[in-house]
């Protein structure tokens, strides 16, 4: 039994989600091969080799993998993947984009957003925005899974797995990369941060997110948002936490001016400690909060910043 994992990287470095996906693979058991598909991605491959539990790194270094387009990466994974018992990727937008394409080409099902591994064929995953937890068993010859990173602790570094080049380099010719606008931030990434402070519609505009920034600076926190705040254009889409945004489970999650809709809770209710600041004492967010403060955020936030 061997497991193939699609690594996520930006050519230079691995995303933290990959080490968490390796952790899920370790629970399945067997050899773990990490595929780094990219262009001039030697540095990412070298980092992949250091992850504990990885027995081999496969590198597909070619121009057609530069932007890791699903059509090209899926074709590569299907070619390499037929002899594996499991194929995994993180349930990030990249994994969600590529892996179902792989599963369909292999004529097997995909199990999305795995949060626990019961055995080599039995997995646990949330459905209905996390309001139900399903345990499913797959009898497919190859099990294709996306892994919810927030449910697994990253494996350690310090390994020195062998790195092997693979020769494949086929451009499926179906899609072309045009452009990318990546949000630049000095802050920790949402999915890696120990503390997150998120703002909702109650923030009223994008400028007011500055009130969160001062606090985030003091706590080394990432800043998140509700869908309403993103839809209203206060902040960019990559800050959305929830059923259809990022799923996070930090040590501390502070929700400010967020009502606590099911879809928002789906993205943060596994946080260790939840704080809610809302002027409406009836807001559903208080039902999941460990500490609730009924207050006007425009008063409470400056005070909080001053007292930290």
């Amino acid at each position: 039994m061997a497991i193939l994992i699609i690594a996520e990287h930006n050519q230079q470095a691995l995303k933290a989600d990959t080490a968490k996906t390796v952790a899920a693979a370790t629970k399945i058991g067997g050899d773990i091969h990490l595929l780094v598909a990219g262009f001039q991605c030697g540095a990412a491959a070298a980092e992949a080799a250091t992850l504990a539990g990885v027995t081999k790194v496969l590198v597909a270094d070619a121009a057609c993998y530069q932007h890791q387009l699903a059509e090209n990466v899926a074709a590569l994974v299907v070619e390499l993947g037929r002899d594996y018992s499991h194929i995994l990727a993180a349930a990030t937008t990249h994994g969600k984009n590529c892996l179902p394409r792989v599963a369909a080409l292999l004529d097997v099902a995909q199990i999305s957003d795995v949060i626990a591994v019961e055995s080599a064929d039995t997995f646990v995953r949330p459905i209905y925005a996390g309001n139900a937890i399903a345990t499913v068993q797959s009898s497919d010859a190859i099990k294709v899974l996306t892994v919810r990173s927030s449910a697994f602790d990253a494996v350690a570094n310090g390994n020195a797995a062998p790195i092997e080049a693979v020769a494949q380099a086929t451009d499926a010719g179906l899609s072309v990369f045009v452009s990318e606008e990546l949000t630049k931030s000095e802050r920790p990434e949402l999915t890696a941060a120990k503390i997150i402070i998120s703002g909702g519609r109650g923030m009223q505009n994008g400028d007011n997110f500055k009130l969160l920034e001062g606090i985030a600076d003091k706590l080394n926190a990432a800043i998140g948002a509700s869908r309403a705040a993103v839809d209203a254009g206060f902040v960019p889409n990559d800050m959305q936490v929830g059923q259809t945004g990022k799923i996070v489970a930090p040590d501390l999650y502070i929700a400010v001016g967020i009502s606590g809709a099911i879809q928002h809770l789906a993205g943060m209710k596994d946080s260790k400690v939840i704080v809610a600041i809302n002027k409406d004492a009836e807001a559903p967010i208080f039902q999941v909060a460990d500490y609730g403060l009924v207050a006007d955020l425009f008063v409470a936030l400056p005070e909080l910043e001053a007292k930290l």
Binding site: S175, V176, F177, V178, E180, E181, L182, T183, D238
Partner: peptide, 11 residues
């Protein structure tokens, strides 16, 4: 909409 921001592809 991708994790890091926005990406445009042509199909």
């Amino acid at each position: 909409e991708i994790d890091g921001g926005l990406q445009t592809v042509s199909l």
